[in-house]
Amino acid sequence: MVCLFPDRIRTDRLCLEAADLDSVTLEQLYEAYSGPGLEDVMAYVPLEPYSTPEEARSFLERAGSKRGENDSATYAIYLRDGEDGAHEFAGTTTLFPDWDRGSASLAIVLLEEFWGRGYSGERAAAMFAVAFDVLDLKVVAIGCLPENTQSKRAIEGYVDRFNGTSDGLFRNARCLDGEPVDLHRFTVTREQYDAATPTPEPTLEYT
């Protein structure tokens, strides 16, 4: 099947590489996602710190096959030259298209040492470019647990820059570790994105 997602996306400060068994080394991913110090990073996402390298392998294998089926696009986040920690692996981000609904949702895991630099918003801008300019979707949604105040602030910031909206707090909208949780939902529509002040355009690359 032809893969619709770009292989690599460059923003001002980040390089997003399609995550599969070829692009990210198992050692890198396992080291980063096996802790210690991941409690805060993974507190509000459906992910537990890895306890075996097999979990890292199966994550990458799954990311590769999902990507091959155009089901979802997971990227490894690297810092570009000039950034503190250049070329380091900083986390992962995924775009989940829902083709029938004409929408997509976003997820990110960013290692704690890279928090507070605005990388999440920069990565979101790249994901918006893929969702709207390449995949021609109509809405991108971002969900956030109400108690995850740090992410909520970051999301509010970039959703606002793209003219998006906070659409509500939805009760028992998701299950996390088997328990129902409430979810704030933010969206940016195609029209809102098109009307936003252009930021430096991410470069989408296909190999």
Binding site: D98, D100, R101, G102, S103, K138, V139, A141, D167, G168, L169, F170, R171, R185, T187, T189
Partner: peptide, 25 residues
């Protein structure tokens, strides 16, 4: 009462539509 608006939530005759969600706990 109303929780909010879910954009592109249902597919109606092939087209995505928005819904308002209401809930009672």
């Amino acid at each position: 009462g109303q929780d909010g608006r879910l954009r592109n939530w249902h597919v109606q005759d092939g087209d995505p539509i928005d819904v308002y969600r209401y809930s009672v706990s």
